[in-house]
Design a binder for these strands. Sequence first.
DNA 1: TTGAAAGCGCTAACAT
DNA 2: ATGTTAGCGCTTTCAA
Lengths: 348, 348
Amino acid sequence: MAGRITSVEVARRAGVSRSAVSRCFTPGASIADDTRKRVMDAAKALGYRPNAIARSLIAGRSRMIAVVVAYLENQFYPDLLARLADELQARGYHLLLFTGPSDGNSDALFAQILAYQVDGIVLASTSLSSALADECNAAGIPVVLINRTNDRAGVSSVTADNRNGARALADFLLAAGHRRFGYVAGSAGSSTNQDRETAFRERLAERGVTEVLREDGLYSQAGAAEAARRLLGRADRPDAVFCANDHMAIAVMDTARHELGLRVPEDVSIVGYDDVGPARWPSYALTSVEQPVGTMVDLAVAALLDRIEGREAAARIARVPGELVVRASARRPEHGVVRVDGRDVWRP
Amino acid sequence: MAGRITSVEVARRAGVSRSAVSRCFTPGASIADDTRKRVMDAAKALGYRPNAIARSLIAGRSRMIAVVVAYLENQFYPDLLARLADELQARGYHLLLFTGPSDGNSDALFAQILAYQVDGIVLASTSLSSALADECNAAGIPVVLINRTNDRAGVSSVTADNRNGARALADFLLAAGHRRFGYVAGSAGSSTNQDRETAFRERLAERGVTEVLREDGLYSQAGAAEAARRLLGRADRPDAVFCANDHMAIAVMDTARHELGLRVPEDVSIVGYDDVGPARWPSYALTSVEQPVGTMVDLAVAALLDRIEGREAAARIARVPGELVVRASARRPEHGVVRVDGRDVWRP
DNA sequence: TTGAAAGCGCTAACAT
DNA sequence: ATGTTAGCGCTTTCAA
């Protein structure tokens, strides 16, 4: 541990008491300009920084937020993490990173998070969101789920408006003339997958299509490639496939083109969800519903800090809408696509 | 802050002193089995966890490691982060994440890092590696640079063997018959870019090729796309391009194919460095030198913890070799490519 | 083996 | 405006 210079040494050098030193580093404390200057000079000379650990002990707040993420291969999560860190740093909080347990041992993780006395927790799409969220909530620590919801009271969450997005995708594909559909699912247990899948099916059913071929991709690229082989290898293969996220859609496209020799979108239209970076790469040009990471982070941080700082006690459930961004991976309907801010979007 | 149950309450319930409670949670402390059981029962009943913050204050060590990363769009960094978090968690340390300042304000960042009394710092490829590393080192906190080096004494670093990798790439491209070369550079200031570029040029020069067209890509995809336009748009364009990393190589490939109408590798061979996930996607099938992130993390953690835990005081400089993985983005030499562990690698 | 007492570095009453 | 005192939750001598 470094920065061993303590406030006593600064106080001695400046010829004042430790309290005076403390006040210099406490915004809004009353201290004479002259004293402040002497203290600051001494502090600078000695290289003194108030010890945030000791401060936390008194304040009962650590100004640290635990963030638990499961998989970082899906570019959505690194984006999320980067923005979260920026946003928290800007507000004087810091991010303690935990990777979701591969071993499913949420208790050990929970113990570690609690031990650090974090002021709040962000759970980004880990398989154990629910269990952890409940425990933390019970322990009185504000929790916000990102890209998952949870029915329990007291747990805030921020998601895309997955149901509306999936409905838009259904309408879009129908408008392009598709009638045979496939769905590559994420983990069945995730609320995001459920929302995307059921809304997609419901909308198709409303419009007279009741059959949707389904394969599990489990949010991994290997799983999605397998799913693509099964789904697109059959004689009566679908001519439009909705993948629960872009990360899988990319693997499905690659498998369709490079393994199965299919043309996209001539032989099969493929659409995804999230609009992550690689979806925009010309090799994929994936039609996808955006999941606005910036807005989601802003809402998550606000929900968390409002509770931590006592401005509001209630949990908040936010659902943020996103555009259906039209690119080249799916057949394009004759009508309904307009250009907005340099992107083609679906506005039927 | 939660987990407000303190050791006093556990002590009272178990009918012992606070010291006894403390000893139960201190490995190797002497305590009667009977007492331990009573304490543990009480602790469990109350949901008590020792406060890591209070503990840090005494120990003078926080068991937190600060990690500073600059850009998370390049998949190498999320991979690094995930493994680092896992590795540290497994050893009882935790990762405090800082995003490298876009505003170039390293002082503010430094202050925050110091305030948290972190036990060590991992600097992953930020533009301010050197300045920060020096400051932290001066403050007595062990530092390890990943994917950068720094001449200063006392600073550990772990990098790929960039010079050897770049030489292998030069040999590989020459063996495939290329004679007109281009280089898309990362940030000129980064040691990694310097090593890759100079070794590439030196090796080509040794073999009689002295001209290499150079464009700046600045480690960003937008920059790389611009570089590709300039480099490949000219009449006497190179027929082989080495990009300082895969992240840029992907943008260069996309630009070549989709904007400039070039075939890869028939019209131009493109090679990168890092062997990140997207390099393996069939749409790119990028020939690249791997940067073994697992090994690099292991070495970085070892270097850091050996110093933190007093096993070794000296800084360590590690350079880890990686295979040149041969895929379809570059013309393939007639000889020298062999299959090892399911990959084609260059072993001249 | 156990408890009492001191103290990690800091801040927040409370005096002055 | 400043100093004195107490104490955040824990561990760690020191005695017993």
